[in-house]
Simulated scan of single mutants.
Amino acid sequence: MTILLTSFAPWLCHHRSNSSDDLLASIQDNYPQKLLFLRQLPVNTHRASERVIKAIQDKKPDFVICCGMAENRYRLSLESQARSSTKKLFTPIPLKDFVKELAYSYISDNAGQFVCEELYFQILKHHPRALFVHVPLLTDKNFAIIQRDFQKIISK
């Protein structure tokens, strides 16, 4: 089984990096056969969606996990849905079962109404076996536990 993992580039001037990309960078060498990486997506809905959809068409992954930074959150947020205008798409992944085994993650019903949510919506239209994970700012105190939870997510 292959998983396509995506992350975003920094988008605000006070960000030296993007926590979603930092998390992917920390695991990139640990799963060489199983994971496909598409890192540093532009924080632009149209361009990011194009790149991910093209990667899905070219690589044909079994599963897609898109990651984005959530500066005001403190744990990993597993997004249950994506909205665009009046439409909603839901991930088919049984998130309630998923989070039972995670120490520092929760289910969110709000993907942020920004580039992350629109990207998630577009990806769910093209590849329903998808999940969006919001990553909080990473610190010395939370990095190890967030990394462990994320490794459990990609190992499922």
Rank of each mutant, 00 (worst) to 15 (best):
Leu4Trp: 08
Leu4Ala: 08
Leu4Met: 11
Phe8Gly: 01
Phe8Tyr: 10
Pro10Ala: 04
Pro10Lys: 11
Trp11Ile: 00
His14Trp: 14
Arg16Lys: 15
Asn18Cys: 06
Asn18Pro: 01
Ser19Gln: 13
Asp21His: 09
Leu24Ala: 04
Leu24Glu: 06
Asp29Ile: 04
Asp29Gly: 14
Asp29Trp: 12
Asp29Thr: 14
Asn30Arg: 13
Tyr31Met: 01
Pro32Phe: 11
Pro32Thr: 02
Gln33Met: 00
Lys34Tyr: 02
Leu36Ala: 07
Leu38His: 10
Leu38Pro: 07
Arg39Lys: 15
Arg39Val: 01
Pro42Ile: 05
Thr45Ala: 14
Thr45Pro: 03
Thr45Ile: 11
Arg47Asp: 15
Arg47Trp: 09
Ala48Gly: 11
Glu50Lys: 05
Arg51Ala: 12
Val52Trp: 01
Lys54Met: 00
Lys54Glu: 06
Ala55Phe: 03
Asp58Lys: 02
Asp58Phe: 00
Asp58Thr: 04
Lys60Asp: 05
Lys60Met: 03
Lys60Arg: 10
Asp62Thr: 12
Phe63Trp: 10
Val64Asn: 07
Ile65Val: 07
Gly68Glu: 12
Met69Gly: 10
Ala70Pro: 06
Ala70Phe: 12
Glu71Gln: 14
Glu71Leu: 11
Asn72Arg: 14
Asn72Val: 05
Arg73Cys: 08
Arg75Phe: 15
Leu76Ala: 14
Ser77Lys: 12
Ser77Ile: 03
Leu78Asn: 08
Leu78Ile: 01
Glu79Ser: 06
Glu79Leu: 07
Ser80Val: 00
Ser80Gly: 11
Ala82Asp: 07
Arg83Gly: 13
Ser85Pro: 00
Thr86Tyr: 07
Thr86Asp: 11
Thr86Ser: 04
Lys88Tyr: 11
Leu89Ile: 10
Phe90Leu: 03
Phe90Tyr: 11
Thr91Ala: 03
Thr91Lys: 01
Ile93Gln: 03
Pro94His: 10
Lys96Gln: 08
Lys96Thr: 03
Asp97Ser: 14
Phe98Pro: 01
Phe98Thr: 09
Val99Thr: 09
Glu101Gly: 05
Ala103Cys: 12
Ala103Pro: 03
Tyr104Val: 02
Ser105Asn: 10
Ser105Arg: 05
Ser105Trp: 04
Ile107Cys: 08
Ile107Phe: 04
Ser108Val: 05
Asp109Gly: 08
Asp109Met: 10
Asn110Gln: 13
Asn110Thr: 08
Gly112Ile: 08
Cys116His: 03
Phe121Pro: 00
Ile123His: 05
Leu124His: 01
Lys125Gly: 04
Arg129Asn: 15
Arg129Ile: 02
Ala130Asp: 02
Ala130Thr: 11
Ala130Ser: 15
Ala130Val: 00
His134Ser: 05
Pro136Tyr: 13
Leu137Tyr: 15
Leu137Ser: 12
Leu138Tyr: 11
Asp140Ala: 15
Asp140Gln: 13
Asn142His: 14
Phe143Pro: 08
Ala144Gln: 14
Ile146Asp: 02
Gln147Asn: 13
Arg148Asp: 11
Gln151His: 05
Lys152Ser: 09
Ile154Thr: 03
Ile154Leu: 07
Ser155Asn: 12
